[in-house]
């Protein structure tokens, strides 16, 4: 079961150049994680998919060539590639077509974990149940996308206090929605 292999073993097997299964496992394992990185930094699902593909293919090239010497540092290695790729994407550098042509789409993961769907009516009730300041903070944060300093200025409190209120509100919302672990 390749799923039980740790990252270092995956890296080793890919480095031998003979394990198509290890490559597929790398893609299966890392694609959802990379997509989250992309969503965070690019705020766009299509761009996140593009980033995922590019980082995976760049990583695979490097592993096949044995360029990762410290095998247990795969995550760190890929994080570096993520950063460079985001920079490249922001500069408009698109290598996707060439890379896809070279490697083909067969290695790319067929599906990604989707963002969970929340019960909208239940969320509305949960938000309405928050204290006034908590409700204002979460709406200003998630809708207005206002920085902590702006929210703090509006409320006349410190940024640290805004953070505390936001954390408390998120915890309460998750508990109310039944998703808190």
């Amino acid at each position: 079961m390749l799923v039980e292999l740790n990252d270092a073993e995956i890296v080793r097997q890919i480095g031998t150049g003979s394990s198509r299964e290890a490559e597929a496992e790398l893609f299966r394992r890392m694609a959802p994680r990379l997509r989250l990185y992309g969503l965070r930094h690019l705020r766009d699902e299509q761009a996140s998919d593009d980033l995922t593909q590019e980082v995976l293919i760049t990583t695979l090239e490097a592993l096949r060539a044995g360029r990762l010497r410290e095998r247990e540092k795969l995550a760190s290695f890929m994080l570096g590639i993520c950063r460079l790729t985001v920079l490249g994407m922001r500069r408009g550098a698109q290598r996707k077509e060439r890379l896809l042509e070279q490697f083909g789409p067969d290695l790319l993961p067929a599906s990604q974990p989707s963002t969970p769907q929340l019960d909208h009516g239940q969320l509305a009730q949960c938000v309405q149940n928050l204290k006034e300041r908590e409700r204002t903070v979460v709406v200003m944060t998630f809708y207005d996308e206002q920085a902590g300093a702006d929210v703090a200025s509006f409320l006349g409190i410190s940024e640290a206090n805004v953070r505390v209120i936001r954390h408390r509100a998120i915890l309460q919302l998750r508990q109310c929605l039944g998703v808190a672990s």
Binding site: L39, T115, Q117, L118, H120, V139, F142, Y143, I170, L173
Partner: peptide, 8 residues
């Protein structure tokens, strides 16, 4: 992320 989108 789902919470953020739903809040929006």
């Amino acid at each position: 992320i789902a919470l953020s989108k739903s809040m929006h």
